[in-house]
Design a protein around this nucleic acid. Structure first.
Lengths: 345, 345
DNA sequence: TCGAGGGCGGCAAGCGTTTGCCAGATTTTG
DNA sequence: CAAAATCTGGCAAACGCTTGCCGCCCTCGA
């Protein structure tokens, strides 16, 4: 490569070359290192010099190039957040919480969507891996071993997923499902079905386990149907399947599925909660204004996002100790659950 | 800085140093440049050599460092997407469309949330500016001059916002609002109110202008109320204000506001569309299952996101010519609009 | 008055890639 | 069969910034 003109003539229509640290140094009449320190190590340079440098920098419209900075320092001030489906309102709160916290800390979020596929998740993580200071995987579908491998390489925190030796923050997945079953039981329901989501879903598995156990200890029936796609589109199949059972209440993998089922029940002439009660998970946007408003388990997802970012930003080193955090969730009772009534027909 | 140990002993608990291109070169017995080319310029190196290099690379678990790559090449394979509020379902489709398209093209999305503030928007843009190959600003609140300045610096495309000399893609903002007014007119409504959103909202201004003009040419009354926050929380105030007018139909700045208003109307004993018709903008998630389902103008936001990314990825240079793209939107008539009926009391 | 120590700025070596240019080897062409 | 063209691989200079170390100069204390 030949020597590049420091101020190469910007061709017609091309963009101006932004000022670099070196430019500032030249204009300010100091060494590049001094400029660098003026920005990153205020105490290390004379106040007057610093003042002058900063003024020159402002004059040139200089902005430190984060890419170059990252290369030498190894710090990118960027966090990667990967979710399984940006489209799912479930993640909105999470993304928002993470974003807010990150931006407060001067960090930027790199967003990835895995489209529900472990393979895509792998690709996405591999792609952003080197560009970030830390990684947040929400509802990861990756096997524990891979998660562990990633964690060994870079600070990683899981959200609503746990794996050995990997830091995680989950919204409570024991008390919550239990509360649901107890709530239904107290309303007189004696037969429940769980409309399950994707097989690889860790949280889905947790939920079902607790539901099953709680039902058993209360002496009521609980069966699992599915898997169904965890989206509104999965609702009809799920609802139809539920109608084929003697259950008087259904617990859906998530609110999306629950809302989808709600509509199907209504279309098929079943009233909710008259004929059948419905409960969901997540308390997503819309759960409060669908018809009828949905009883659901609400977890502080934005808090989880915030927490994950906080860990990564303020104490990334603790991730090697792989602590696990759990945030409380609680049942939000709305109008989709009511007293059990004998099934029609 | 002293010479660094090429393979510095990784201390206890610290993360292993990932393999670099140089490591691969050494192991494969070739020059670094050859390794680089094996990855980025397949035709430039002998097939057998390439094969060998790739094998060695795989063995070392080598992954090119995007940061270093970006520094020299100036290309980051990253696009910045900044929206005014990630929480607003309005943007979900946009984000998803952009994400999908970006990931297909091997690009990553850097996400920014401006929290509805021009000042924050400025900060966010400045922060990610140098780390991306292109910028997408959705519903930007920045003044035209600033937008122009950014566009002069880096490929930039605006979504649902236009400014001189800046590339943009908008969902139609002329036919749509007109259709709304005509629809309402055909139902017999003779007095409308527009519940406006933020003052700085470009699209809001466009909408109102068309609504006003169309109403005038149809000889019906149209007044503007607000501004109201463009969220469900803004609904009650907006609804109450509307009730104070003789209007029989309201057009809300967006669906969020419309849904919020819907609930307030219901709470105050007004039936929709019996007493009053309501229409929104965006066709967000939930607009189809709120009560009653909302008549709204649906624009192909995911398509807009996709388009913006496509421009930036495949022909960033056209942004200097600042073309404007418009995507068709159409009215989705659901149950929140009906025949006008004289207002009660 | 002189040596010690602290403050402050500069030097230069990288960080991990990409890439213009060069040169030897090999193939094609006339 | 020589000359020209094509392949391939290597060299080394960047990209823009950070940072360990060195050394100058000024201030203090004895």
């Amino acid at each position: 490569m030949t020597v590049r003109e420091p101020t190469e003539p910007t061709g017609v229509g091309s963009r101006p070359r932004p000022a670099t640290l070196t430019d500032v140094a030249r204009v300010a009449g100091v060494a590049p290192s001094t400029v660098s320190r003026a920005f990153t190590r205020p105490g290390r340079v004379n106040a007057a010099t610093r003042e002058h440098v900063l003024r020159m920098a402002a004059e040139l419209g200089y902005r430190p190039n984060p890419v170059a900075r990252a290369l030498e320092s190894g710090r990118t001030s960027t966090l990667g957040l990967v979710v399984s489906d940006i489209t799912n309102p479930h993640f909105f709160a999470l993304v928002r919480g993470a974003e807010r916290q990150a931006s407060t800390a001067g960090f930027t979020l790199l967003l990835g969507d895995t489209q529900q596929s472990p393979q895509t998740e792998r690709t996405v993580v591999d792609r952003i891996h080197a560009s970030v200071d830390g990684l947040i995987l929400a509802a990861s579908r990756l096997p524990p071993a891979e998660l562990r491998a990633y964690a060994a390489t870079k600070p990683l925190v899981l959200i609503n997923r746990q794996a050995q030796d990997v830091t995680s923050v989950v919204t409570d997945h024991v008390d919550g499902p239990r509360q649901i079953v107890e709530h239904l039981h107290s309303l007189g329901h004696r037969a429940l079905v769980f409309l399950s989501g994707p097989r690889e879903s860790w949280s889905g598995a947790q939920r079902w386990a607790v539901i099953r156990d709680t039902a058993k200890s209360l002496g009521i029936a609980a069966t699992r149907l599915g898997p169904f796609p965890p989206s509104m589109a999965g609702g009809p199949a799920a609802a139809d399947a539920a109608i084929g059972t003697p259950a008087t209440a259904v617990i859906a993998h998530n609110d999306l599925l629950a809302i989808g089922a709600l509509r199907r029940f209504s279309d098929r002439g079943f009233t909710v909660p008259g004929d059948i009660s419905v409960v969901g998970f997540d308390d997503i946007f819309g759960a409060d204004f669908c018809a009828p408003p949905l009883t659901t388990l609400t977890g502080p997802l934005d808090e989880a996002g915030r927490k994950a970012v906080e860990i990564l930003v303020t104490q990334p080193e603790v991730t090697v100790r792989a602590p696990r955090f759990s945030l409380p969730s609680h049942l939000k009772i709305r109008e989709s659950t009511g007293p059990a009534r004998p099934r029609r027909s």
